[in-house]
């Protein structure tokens, strides 16, 4: 059942996914065709410029996953299925995560290609500071950044979906309700983080190894990160997800 739902969401939004991925590939190859004509720095900057739209795309596609159901009346089918709401909501979030992961991998591959073809990569490789970075640490940090970015994007998307579905409970000013709900949810997350820092200070902290390279000599520092705020935010997100499912199952109408 879940797999069918996931497949349906993936197939239903493949056109826009392919369009974005296609645009990214075209942009990368356009810039690669300008190697030796434009400066490597200009190409690198231009490559990263459109990536600023990624959060906007996440927002738009998150809402679209639900908005389309009501706009095209398929909400009649979605809400009449004998599936628990979590089947529908988790499948839509999984599709969002799939899209974000694919795009992030494409962006990473494109960045590597641009850096390699412009000579930036070779230049970096000869730098003693860069050469001093242990590969194992670089891989771990890349995975950590990837995981954090993915979690952040999925959270942004989930809050947008929550705001949209919540706005469906109103017959008027839905756009306004959605925007304000989304803002309010972020404020709530901030407050939960603050509160978690105070009330959950007893939780064990976690540490991240940060690296400083000075004159080609690597120096590791242990950075302590309080887990209280993260735990509080995670708890609030779990609560919001339960509420989101309850809303879809018991309150929202076609």
């Amino acid at each position: 059942m879940w797999w069918q739902q996931y497949k349906k969401e993936l197939m239903g939004h493949r056109a826009e996914g392919l369009l974005i991925a296609g645009a990214l590939v075209v942009w990368t190859f356009l810039l690669l065709s300008r190697v030796n004509r434009w400066s490597p720095e200009a190409i690198a900057v231009l490559y990263w410029l459109p990536m600023g739209f990624l959060p906007l795309w996440v927002l738009w596609s998150s809402v679209q996953l639900y908005r389309q159901e009501w706009r095209e009346n398929t909400s009649y089918l979605m809400l009449s299925l004998p599936a628990r709401a979590w089947v529908i909501t988790s499948a839509k979030l999984a599709v969002l995560a799939t899209g974000v992961t694919t795009l992030m991998l494409l962006i990473g591959a494109g960045a590597w290609l641009v850096a390699a073809r412009t000579g930036i990569l070779a230049e970096l490789a000869t730098s003693p500071d860069i050469a001093a970075i242990p590969r194992e640490w670089a891989v771990k940090m890349s995975l950590l950044v990837f995981g954090v970015a993915l979690a952040a994007f999925v959270t942004i998307g989930f809050l947008a979906q929550f705001a949209y579905v919540f706005s469906r409970l109103f017959s008027r000013f839905r756009g306004l309700v959605m925007v304000w709900t989304w803002i309010l949810l972020f404020w709530l997350l901030g407050r939960a983080g603050d509160l978690g820092g105070l009330l959950l200070a007893w939780l064990p902290d976690f540490y991240v190894r940060s690296l400083n390279v000075i004159s080609g000599i690597p120096e590791f520092l242990l950075v302590r990160i309080e887990s209280g705020p993260f735990a509080a935010v995670a708890l609030l997100l779990v609560g919001l997800y339960a509420l989101f499912n309850a809303m879809l199952e018991r309150a929202v109408e076609v």
Binding site: K8, M11, N73, T74, S75, Y76, L77, P82, E249
Partner: peptide, 21 residues
């Protein structure tokens, strides 16, 4: 509820199917 929905086959008046399928 989802449980009672399993007992019901519902055909709405409007087109409620996914056009791309």
């Amino acid at each position: 509820s989802p449980k009672t929905k399993a007992k019901i086959a519902y055909l709405p008046e409007i087109d409620h199917l996914y056009g791309w399928m």
